[in-house]
Simulated assay, not measured.
Amino acid sequence: MKGEHEKEESSAPRPTHLRTGSEQPVDPEDLVRLSGREPTPERIEKARRELEEHGAAAVERYLP
Rank of each mutant, 00 (worst) to 15 (best):
59 V>H: 02
42 E>C: 08
44 I>E: 10
43 R>W: 06
62 Y>Q: 03
3 G>L: 10
3 G>D: 06
2 K>N: 13
41 P>I: 05
61 R>E: 11
44 I>M: 09
49 R>M: 09
31 L>E: 05
49 R>A: 09
59 V>M: 00
20 T>Y: 13
22 S>Y: 06
10 S>P: 00
13 P>M: 02
39 P>T: 02
5 H>I: 13
35 S>E: 12
55 G>I: 09
34 L>V: 01
13 P>W: 00
18 L>V: 02
11 S>H: 10
21 G>V: 06
40 T>I: 05
47 A>V: 09
11 S>P: 00
1 M>G: 15
18 L>C: 02
33 R>M: 14
59 V>A: 01
10 S>A: 12
57 A>W: 06
38 E>M: 03
43 R>G: 12
10 S>H: 09
5 H>V: 09
12 A>E: 11
36 G>D: 06
19 R>K: 09
23 E>A: 11
21 G>F: 05
20 T>N: 13
64 P>S: 08
16 T>L: 15
51 L>H: 00
59 V>D: 02
48 R>A: 15
29 E>N: 05
53 E>K: 15
20 T>H: 14
63 L>R: 13
53 E>R: 14
2 K>E: 12
13 P>A: 09
26 V>P: 00
53 E>F: 02
62 Y>E: 04
26 V>N: 07
36 G>T: 11
12 A>Y: 05
22 S>P: 00
29 E>F: 04
24 Q>M: 11
56 A>R: 11
12 A>M: 07
45 E>H: 05
11 S>K: 13
2 K>P: 08
32 V>L: 03
56 A>Q: 06
18 L>Y: 04
30 D>A: 15
56 A>M: 02
